[in-house]
């Protein structure tokens, strides 16, 4: 554990808190992509299968929180707040993301075991799971401030893992190329969003695309 990883995980927790807080206080999930949320649940379930055979207090607790909160968000979106979700603006074709992640996972896992292939699938899928959400923001041309805070916190989480990987490589020669490549791609996908977030939202203006 190092400060970058801890900060990254805290940003991940904060992003989930912001999302659930936004939905429960406004009693609405407008502006949130159901497809991205469904992909995240798929990411957590396929990556954290090792809950069944590995226990570490910090990691296991976080894994349960991520799976549980993700399932809760999907419950809110399909149950109580379903009328506020507009599928007509949530139209990204996720089959290509799932298919691409599945192909990469089958071709280049660390080991050809079901758990390793699913872990690799989850790493690639996470790197692109935000795309339906970003696509939705782009289609509507604007986003609520709270939604932009959510996307920022979620992006900051994986961005902070990058200095964590550098630190771990330098201090213990830890080297996880799949996580690192996918994590860099994930951060790059957020970079346009980060730029607009910094230049607009943090200066008190509305998030609107130029």
């Amino acid at each position: 554990m190092n400060i970058f990883r801890l900060a990254g995980d805290l940003f991940h927790l904060i992003s989930i808190f912001i999302l659930i807080h936004k939905m429960t206080t406004s009693k609405s999930c407008s502006g949130i992509s159901f497809k991205s949320q469904a992909l995240y649940l798929l990411v957590y379930v396929t990556r954290y299968l090792d809950l069944f055979w590995t226990f570490a207090l910090y990691n296991s607790t976080m894994k349960i929180i991520f799976i549980g909160s993700s399932a809760y968000v999907l419950h809110l979106m399909t149950g109580p707040f379903k009328p506020t979700h507009d599928p007509n603006i949530d139209t990204f074709k996720v089959r290509y993301l799932i298919g691409g992640a599945a192909i990469l996972a089958l071709l280049f896992p660390y080991k050809w075991t079901p758990a390793e292939v699913l872990w690799t699938f989850s790493i690639w899928l996470e790197s692109v799971a935000i795309l339906p959400q970003l696509f939705m923001v782009q289609r509507t041309g604007a986003a609520e401030t709270i939604t932009t805070h959510y996307i920022f916190a979620l992006g900051a989480y994986r961005a902070l893992y990058i200095p964590n990987w550098i630190y771990r490589y330098l201090t213990s020669t830890f080297w996880d190329p799949l996580s690192i490549i996918a994590g860099v791609i994930q951060t790059v996908l957020y970079s346009d969003f980060f730029y607009i977030y910094y230049t607009k939202v943090l200066q008190g203006r509305k998030f609107e695309l130029p």
């Binding site: 995980d9 991940h12 570490a56 990691n59 991520f66 660390y110 893992y161 080297w175």
Partner: peptide, 10 residues
Amino acid sequence: AAESTKHDEL
């Protein structure tokens, strides 16, 4: 040593 399949991150 490579620890690439330890998966000790989230």
